[in-house]
């Protein structure tokens, strides 16, 4: 029989910066915020600049669900996770897709250097770009895994979940870190569950079989 988990490793993820999401993260409100052209040009230049410092890498790992008992989700060879909120999300799923992504060390070094050099505005923009890019890379991993799964008659559900959501405590970060083998992305975890480099994330989602009414995702 097949071994329990399957990996997708993306050595680099190339995505366009999600401009709207970056602006929104920085507090921009459509129709309310007024921005003069020179400031917009400066911010856009920083967003473009950040792209040369961001090294997006990602991992997707699917693990079959063995059984769900009470608030526990037992995984094939990977122990169990405990969360009633997560169980709700995984309704009808027979596998969990674990995803991890990082924007790499370089962008953090540049942000820190900007902070030391008192260029706080640039640091704030680069920070927002890195956060949104790493988040968007999870969507990219999900989409790519969907493409692979389509031929197996499966798909990844739209919603995703992370440690700290609902009753799924941050302490689960360590187990997810190990399932994903995040070291392969050059990511470490601290005792307080921070992922280092800073702009690194994990998330999980469910994998379902296509039913008659499902459209291809």
């Amino acid at each position: 029989m097949r071994l329990s988990k399957e990996f997708l490793f993306l050595g680099f993820i190339k995505i366009e910066p999600p401009w709207e999401r970056i602006y929104r993260r920085l507090g921009y409100k459509e129709g309310v915020t007024k921005i003069i052209p020179s400031q917009k040009k400066e911010i856009d230049e920083y967003i473009n600049l950040s792209l040369s410092y961001i090294d997006l890498k990602g991992l997707g790992v699917s693990v079959p669900i063995k059984k769900i008992n009470g608030s526990k989700i037992f995984l094939e060879q990977e122990g169990f996770l405990e969360s009633r909120d997560l169980i709700k999300l995984l309704k009808g799923c027979d596998e969990i897709l674990f995803m991890g992504a990082t924007a790499g060390r370089k962008i953090i070094e540049v942000i820190q250097s900007d902070l030391r050099g008192e260029d706080l505005m640039r640091a704030v923009v680069l920070d927002a770009v890195a956060s949104e890019m790493v988040d968007a890379s999870l969507d990219c991993i999900r989409l790519q895994i969907n493409n692979i799964l389509a031929n197996r008659g499966k798909y990844v559900i739209n919603k995703r979940f992370s440690c700290g959501y609902g009753d799924f405590s941050l302490q689960n970060q360590k187990q997810i870190f190990h399932i994903l083998e995040m070291e392969r992305l050059g990511v470490n975890i601290t005792d307080t569950y921070f992922l280092i480099p800073e702009k690194s994330v994990t998330a999980l989602s469910g994998i379902k079989r296509l039913n008659k009414n499902s459209k291809k995702i």
Binding site: L26, G27, V32, T33, Q39, E42, D119, M121, V124
Partner: peptide, 20 residues
């Protein structure tokens, strides 16, 4: 302006840095 959201964070910081 920031409180009214007419300015967003990068503008606030740019002004603060100019002031500094």
């Amino acid at each position: 302006l920031f409180e009214k959201k007419e300015y967003f964070l990068p503008q606030l910081i740019a002004s603060a840095q100019t002031m500094e």
